[in-house]
Design a protein around this nucleic acid. Structure first.
Lengths: 174, 174
DNA sequence: TATTGTTATACTCTATAACTATA
DNA sequence: TATAGTTATAGAGTATAACAATA
């Protein structure tokens, strides 16, 4: 069997152009990689940064609450909180009304780093969209937001994303 | 230390809106999940589908060539080719000029499945963009393509993407 | 008895490194 | 000696399940 040319041409075109799905995945992963690179000087990973900012947005959550919000296991949260606590960016405080809970708060250093991360994030956004003109960038982000809404992806954290050396072509194609 | 409100407001806004980076990641992962779901009836995963289509586009590649193109290890390719060969979608053919090489070709069934996959892919694309009007969809894909080009992501396969249960918030945030 | 946080265990996925057969 | 493909091994990463403290 060899080369039914109609199908082959179709496949070639699709692979060459890339559909919305493929491009979204490709760009999403690239964005992730760039973000991770920006975090290196801070000595934290993407998930540590994410957790830090979540706590900054609403202080005092329990680790359980964060695990639920981020849709991961509590045991995973422990390690991330440990890392952030070791770096003295957040601290666990006992809660008087329920001593089982370790409420999480940013340290002074944590707030400084959070502010720095927001600056970094602004640059990251500009860099990502540097191939677009200002009006196009606005339009692009709006379209992304509308798509996310239409797929029910806001305001929850997305359910997953590969790390820098995760499965290398798990979702590839279309 | 508690709640430097300027930073906190900034963080809250960013997390609520989501920047281009976060939205790209979120949507990219979602697209991947939907695609994987579409592949289930075929009994193959995203990487098997990707490899099948790569071979359909250019028949007769060595496994080494595919590994280089997809930027993964050769040992990983072996398993995927095994799966596709077991499903009788592709076959390894010896190459007369160099008997070390197993050249890959689609079987008759493989071509039928490839054709089906293209239909599936078309539907997938429509579904992904169903929240946009036709003109917006065209504009959106064009913007994605331009961004991919500006970041040097075309025509290579993207360097990675998490699987369905990979790191669940590895790249989250911005 | 149920729940928070922690630790221990088992499993999946992947790349690296042997190994074989050809060149 | 080098290369294509295969298999075996080791490492990272995660969730599940057991555990301790508190409710």
């Amino acid at each position: 069997m060899s080369r039914p040319s109609a199908v082959q041409r179709q496949v070639r075109r699709r692979l060459a152009e890339g559909g919305a799905g493929f491009l979204l995945s490709q760009l999403g992963f690239h964005a992730s990689t760039l973000w991770r690179r920006r975090l290196e000087p801070f000595g934290i990973g993407a998930r540590e940064a994410n957790l830090l900012l979540r706590v900054a947005a609403d202080e005092g959550p329990s680790q359980r609450a964060l695990a639920d919000m981020l849709e991961v296991s509590t045991s995973l949260v422990v390690g991330v909180v440990d890392a952030l606590a070791n770096a003295q960016l957040i601290e666990r405080r006992p809660r008087p009304d329920d001593r089982r809970i370790h409420a999480l708060y940013l340290t002074e250093k944590g707030w400084r780093v959070a502010a720095d991360l927001m600056k970094e994030s602004d640059e990251h956004e500009r860099d990502l969209c540097s191939g677009l003109r200002p009006a196009e960038r606005t339009e692009f982000v709006e379209l992304l937001q509308r798509l996310a809404v239409s797929h029910g992806l806001i305001p929850h954290v997305h359910p997953g994303f590969g790390d820098s050396r995760g499965k290398s072509w798990g979702r590839a194609q279309s």
